[in-house]
Simulated assay, not measured.
Amino acid sequence: MSTTHPNEFAGRRALVTGGTRGIGRAIAERLRAGGATVLAAARSLPADQPEESAVVADISTTAGTDAIAHAVTERLGGIDIVVHNAGGSSQNAGGAATTTDEEWSKTFELNFFGAVRLDRALITQLPADGAIIHVTSIQRRSPLPTTLPYAAAKAALANYSKALSNELAPRGIRVNAVAPGYVETESAYQMAADIAAINGVDIDEARKQIMASIGGIPLAAPGRPQDVAELVAFLVSDRATYITGAEYVIDGGSTRTV
């Protein structure tokens, strides 16, 4: 159950990449509910997303990251919180033998290099109590055979996040990572609906099939985008001022290793 404090982030300026849908949208809404001024970056805007609170840019390109950084400076006048949520992957059933250089490059640009470029552009603007969150994935520890580039890119992002935390800690800037498991975003729901239609079962049974495919979830349900948003809100808040260089798994217990 969320306990939102309307003034928790009053006066703070935040950027959320991939912030118009799914987990990113939930994070942006949670920070706004706490009083932050939030700029959401995305490749496209849904019909109900106000243009004044978003910047349309592709973070997987140099031009896109430059556009986002420029929008932060021009529209927010600086930055206090950066949440790197943008990411994604295509499926390749053929595994490593059939994954092309283009697929590897495209996936790393979206899931890794975009965050690296944007951090480089923004860290000089962050104040002493600034915070950065990198959204990784449990796949960086438990890769699936159909999404090898995605898992590898998220592993690189987690490693980079730790290194950046060591670099920025003396300035008081905290850097942490959040690793979601199976979270039912709009796209994840559609995947379940597609599986249900193909197999002639209902949505609940399709969800069970998905959970079984990743080795099961002890809490027996997918997460909600709001669950991840609450964790991010905690990590960028004044309640977590002594936490940096950490990665928090939020997966309902599906990761069995310590």
Rank of each mutant, 00 (worst) to 15 (best):
S53D: 15
I132F: 09
A40H: 03
V175C: 11
L144Q: 15
H70L: 10
F108H: 02
T185K: 09
R117I: 01
H70K: 06
D66H: 02
A96Q: 11
A233Y: 01
R13F: 07
V201C: 15
S53I: 09
T99Q: 09
T146G: 07
I79P: 02
G172H: 05
A42V: 11
A71V: 00
L168G: 07
A33T: 05
R120E: 08
S142Q: 15
E186K: 10
R171W: 13
D48R: 14
A193S: 12
E29G: 12
G181S: 01
H134V: 08
R13E: 05
R117T: 01
T255Q: 05
A192L: 04
T3P: 05
G215E: 12
R207S: 09
V183Y: 00
A67V: 02
G200Q: 10
V249L: 03
A151H: 11
V183N: 02
A10I: 10
G24D: 04
E102W: 02
R174I: 10
A54C: 14
R12Y: 08
I59D: 07
I133A: 06
A71R: 06
L168H: 00
D129A: 10
D66Q: 09
S213R: 14
A163C: 10
L31D: 03
A42R: 12
G64Q: 11
I132G: 05
I79Q: 02
Y150K: 06
A86N: 04
I81C: 01
V228A: 12
I23V: 12
G11D: 07
T100I: 00
G64H: 08
S161H: 08
E230C: 06
F108E: 00
A240G: 01
A14C: 12
E205G: 09
V178W: 01
S237R: 06
V38Y: 09
Q139M: 13
L118W: 02
I173R: 05
G181K: 03
R43L: 13
A177N: 03
E74S: 07
G35L: 03
D80E: 00
Y182A: 14
Q91R: 15
L122I: 03
Y150E: 06
A36M: 05
F9L: 15
G215Y: 13
R256T: 02
D58C: 09
G78H: 01
A177I: 07
S105E: 15
A177V: 06
T136V: 15
L157E: 09
A14I: 04
A163N: 12
R174T: 09
H5T: 14
A177M: 06
E205L: 13
R239Y: 06
P222V: 11
S44L: 08
I123P: 00
M211D: 14
H70C: 06
V38G: 03
F234K: 02
A67Y: 00
H70D: 13
S142M: 15
A26M: 04
L118G: 03
